[in-house]
């Protein structure tokens, strides 16, 4: 998954890592390469702010992947069939893999995975707010695939062409897997909608809870969102509102096929615009979840923190063993 088209500044911007020499000549050359649509690679000169923006965005994306394992992981042990259990396990494993590629992409910018991880656990770094909503019934797993992964794909496809090579290449693979997840989620919902009244009720309940948070994933309206530099640098290629509209237009028809009602009385086709109109987004809710007051913000970080703390002795042991091995090899040699 899952970018959130919102660039949230970290409380104390990271001042470490290799510092670029700022030079107008280099910058002009850099801008020319961006304009020519070339990829910027790790060894290339880049403006310091470009590097920091990317570290922040890629690490927020990586954190979103691994925090995103939790709400879905919540249902693995209760999956209703062995086939669905296997699909969900594979999906959550993919999210972990996306986290790994993305941490590796961020590391090419001169920052370590441990530093990034510490920023997540201390609350300095953010992750996609969508994962601060709870998964309350089995249909949530299908709806996350359909809507949340669907929104993530809309956000992420433009990133496959973003200017930073390692990020763009990671996103190509991530998007392929995400689109598979989206189809699996939709398929699970189709099966449930063909089933019993109890199953259909679960699907509608899940759609009611996830619809608005999903369209919030595209971030604030363009008029309230400043992405001038990201757009200039080829990191942000399509605006939040354009992506959101594209998502709504694609999703309404899918909801009809599924037979669910999207919980927005203002949702209707506007022939003049050639798009669906939709109701006002509750930005108070969005910002309160971003700022830490969502239902699961505390639990999500507590779960990641517990896994990290409980695993400390394992990581120490692995390190101690590696050192012993190295010492033994030295003696043997």
């Amino acid at each position: 998954m899952y970018t959130q088209a919102l660039d949230i500044p970290q409380k104390d911007a990271d001042e470490r890592g290799p510092r670029a020499v700022e030079s107008p000549a280099y910058e002009a050359e850099f801008n020319a390469r961006i304009d020519a649509g070339e990829f910027i690679e790790p060894k290339d000169w880049m403006p310091e702010k470009y590097r920091k923006t990317l570290i922040r965005q890629i690490s927020q994306h990586a954190h979103s992947e691994i925090v995103g394992m939790l709400p879905e992981g919540n249902w693995i042990t209760r999956a209703p069939s062995l086939k669905r259990k296997a699909i969900l396990l594979a999906k959550v494993q993919d999210e972990g893999g996306h986290g790994l590629y993305l941490y590796a992409a961020a590391e090419t910018l001169g920052v370590s995975r441990d530093e990034l991880y510490e920023a997540l656990l201390s609350g300095k770094a953010k992750y996609s707010s969508i994962f601060n909503y709870p998964t309350l019934n089995w249909a949530d797993i299908g709806v996350i695939g359909w809507l949340v992964d669907g929104a993530a794909i809309m956000n992420q496809i433009p990133l496959c062409k973003c200017s930073y090579g390692p990020y763009a290449r990671a996103m190509i693979r991530v998007c392929k897997e995400e689109s598979f997840h989206q189809r699996q989620g939709y398929d699970a919902l189709l099966q449930m909608m063909k089933g019993t009244a109890g199953q259909r009720e679960m699907v509608q309940d899940a759609v009611n809870r996830w619809w608005w948070p999903s369209i919030m994933m595209f971030g604030p309206h363009d008029k309230d969102s400043i992405h001038v530099e990201s757009a200039r640098w080829g990191i942000k290629r399509i605006s939040n509102d354009d992506l959101r509209q594209k998502f709504v237009d694609a999703t309404v028809k899918q909801a009809e096929v599924l037979g669910v009602t999207l919980p927005d009385p203002d949702l209707k086709w506007n022939a003049e615009r050639g798009h669906y109109d939709f109701g006002a987004i509750d930005w108070d809710e969005f910002w309160s979840v971003v700022k830490g007051d969502g239902q699961c913000n505390v639990d999500r970080i507590a779960a990641r923190r517990k896994a990290w703390d409980d695993g400390a002795w394992v990581r120490e042991a692995a390190l101690a063993f590696a050192e012993k091995q190295a010492a033994r090899e030295k003696v043997a040699a």
Binding site: I66, I76, T77, A303, R315
Partner: peptide, 13 residues
């Protein structure tokens, strides 16, 4: 499968 998301390092998850 109970480990998923709770392992000591991402690779072990």
């Amino acid at each position: 499968s109970e480990w998923c998301g709770h392992a000591p390092v991402l690779e072990e998850d």
